[in-house]
Design a binder for these strands. Structure first.
Lengths: 147, 147
DNA sequence: ATACTTGCAAAAAGTTTGCTCTCTG
DNA sequence: CAGAGAGCAAACTTTTTGCAAGTAT
């Protein structure tokens, strides 16, 4: 599906398609949610043991520059996910369990408009993440899930 | 003013007041907005050249644990500011000029309620930061969007 | 007096870079 | 074939840690 479209776009843009890049793209694409650099690395390395962490960094940066992936700041580390303009969303990250959930963009429409209207501040909500405590962790406060 | 109150609280809590800690507290307090670790370090070092970066880290963590300062994630780096319960606010950070602006908490009231109601997700908006492009940078773009 | 702190140095952890050889287009 | 990319190792940056010596209470 969209994997093909991405490859096509890369080709059109004159970006060389190396096995490493394909593996990294796959890793990010498979990893649904969003993967940290090291997760992408490990994943890609499974198919190609010579994979180098530097290549992962360079490729991820390349992909980001090309608009193929999106950076999501989770905690103090960057995560990456395939950028799909039709499925834009934000993220809720639980500070307790580390879980990350997608959030429909319209929850922030009002906020965005307010910022633009009031401050002429154009928020970049693509990389937007709210930290907090998720339903599960709120219900069962860490140690005793049910007693 | 509140500096005294903080010192009093530290004393009550049995935290030792060393010159280093006072300098670090001052640095954060002076630096209005929010300072990065290195900024706090440099600032404090001006008054006391032997100041060590490890001390800054340890002290900042201590202050955070005690609720004296708040961590603000700006970019991929933590910044710190004095925590004043009477002046809670969020932050808008300009991705272009790096400027950080305070944002009144009520801009997010609706958002918070929606998250809690819909997902039982309790957002931690104390450490909340929106990235984007500020009015200035939007007006006179220093670099062109695409070449 | 004594436990908490600091300074210093070294260790970690995460990211980036220089260089050479390889491979894509 | 030419130039972009990969592999590798070393450099960097930021943050943390172990310890001996110093200091606040």
């Amino acid at each position: 599906m969209k994997r093909q479209g991405i490859l096509e776009e890369l080709r059109v843009r004159g970006v060389r398609l190396t096995p490493q890049r394909l593996l990294i793209l796959n890793a990010v694409a498979e990893g649904e949610g969003h993967l940290g650099v090291d997760e992408v690395f490990r994943q890609a390395k499974q198919s190609y043991p010579y994979m180098d962490i530097a290549t992962v960094y360079r490729t991820l940066h390349l992909f980001k520059r090309l608009g193929v992936v999106t950076e999501v700041a989770i905690g103090d580390r960057l995560h990456f996910e395939i950028r799909d303009p039709d499925r834009r969303h934000h993220h809720m990250v639980c500070a307790k369990c580390g879980g990350a959930y997608d959030l429909a963009p319209d929850y922030l429409d009002g906020f965005r408009e307010a910022l633009m209207k009031e401050f002429s501040f154009e928020p970049d909500l693509d990389n937007f993440t709210v930290t907090g405590v998720c339903a599960n962790c709120n219900a069962g406060p860490s140690d005793s899930p049910q007693g």
